[in-house]
Design a binder for these strands. Structure first.
Lengths: 234, 234
DNA sequence: CTTTTATGATAGTAATACTATTATTAATGG
DNA sequence: CCATTAATAATAGTATTACTATCATAAAAG
């Protein structure tokens, strides 16, 4: 990973750019730790302000509410994942091999020891994405927020990977559905391994990531290589 | 569908059994409508009480909080889905055909005009499950609630379908992961078709259910029929 | 050296998520 | 049929959350 990369988002879930000030970076750094510790529901701006030695009002100058902060964090995660996938696949010629590598990177994202950016701990952020990310779009305001561009980063990763599917299997009719299913499954299977093991076959929660990978690879490649005749017949 | 079936849950997310009293049934019936209209976050016991002509305190005698009410509704949904799948598959001998039928029923659950129980509108409940169900287990209390049996119904459906996968393909190593992925995808693809169409290939949101079905069928059957050799080689 | 700009300090409000108390009514049991 | 229990309604009250507003101060920019 490059020593310093710059992830920039395509929308403004924030009021003031948090990357540009000391307080902003503290808000990001500490909110990641607190959401991981307390869970999103128990996390408040008041608690955050107390922890970073600031005030509630100051935090509210950066984000309208905690939901928009979560949108920011999750968007940052997906922008970073896209960067990472691009980085690890750009010189692979064979479409199948490229897709395979992309799935590996997607599944293993957030497992690296060394962070790309000093104040963002990607391993903790990954845990937040696993536990909380579905909440960013499961709200009554989803359509307005979609219009505001809040989900551009996740959609971009989906399109990017769907394109790889199309390159590898031009006949396969559900590239986006397949990829969005896999993107969600990557997170879910890790969560299930840890909290609801009956819902998965991944046994060791310590190695959930490693065990999820062959399942997803097989799922994707059997879907796109497998008997496409069958679909057409229907 | 039978004229009157009785869905009973394996745990006590409620304080007082809501099915047994008039007020309890009103709470269930009206909360389904209100959560659908307002979204779970904007739904409160105060608003619910006002709508059914009761008081906040009375609602609290049935459910400790709105989260447990959601657990109840989602559990009811899965118990009902399991009943429905059992009903539609019990006399099918061929394992593949049985699995196929089960996936159809799973995907089409909640589309029927006629409800099984007078005060529960399954079509609205299905919309709630699509939009809100992931919130029942994405909390900091997931492990305690799992111990309390709050997720027995969804786990039961997963095990039931995973068993069908094993009957159809005894060699396939990820039956539970495959089924939990499909169960989630069933809901997600419908949600994406409606709110985030970039994440799916399902075009017409009106027929999202119908279009999701062939995608899922192909996904499952190519996974279990497809080259199992490949997995073993790894 | 003055004027923005960011932050801190403090206060305040409406809504949420409850809990407690008492009165009233309906159901049950002897 | 009366006495007891149980369920609900009515009302009040509390702690926390999710903000908004005001003003002072410190730092940075012009």
């Amino acid at each position: 990973m490059a020593a310093s990369i710059l992830i920039s988002l395509n929308h403004k879930s924030y009021l003031r750019e948090p990357e540009s000030t000391e307080l902003g970076r503290k808000i990001i750094a500490e909110s990641i730790k607190m959401i991981d510790n307390l869970g999103f529901e128990n996390f408040t701006f008041k608690k955050l302000a107390a922890k970073i030695g600031s005030t509630e009002a100051s935090v509210y100058r950066y984000f309208e509410n905690k939901h928009k902060l979560l949108v920011y964090l999750v968007s940052w995660y997906w922008a970073w994942v896209k960067y990472t996938i691009t980085f690890h696949t750009h010189n692979i010629q064979d479409p199948c091999e490229r897709l395979c590598r992309a799935i590996e990177v997607l599944t293993q994202a957030g497992q690296d020891e060394d962070p790309s950016i000093a104040y963002i701990d990607e391993r903790i952020l990954h845990r937040i994405v696993v536990s909380e990310s579905s909440k960013v779009y499961h709200t009554k305001e989803v359509d307005e927020e979609n219009k505001a561009g809040y989900f551009l980063e996740i959609k971009s990763v989906c399109s990017f990977l769907a394109k790889m599917v199309q390159d590898a299997a031009p006949e396969y009719p559900y590239p986006h559905a397949l990829i969005s299913t896999v993107m969600e499954a990557t997170l879910q299977q890790i969560y299930f391994a840890k909290h609801l093991p009956t819902l998965t076959d991944i046994k060791k929660k310590e190695q959930a990531v490693e065990e999820t990978l062959p399942f997803l690879k097989h799922l994707v490649f059997s879907a796109i290589e497998g008997n496409l005749m069958k679909i057409k017949a229907e």
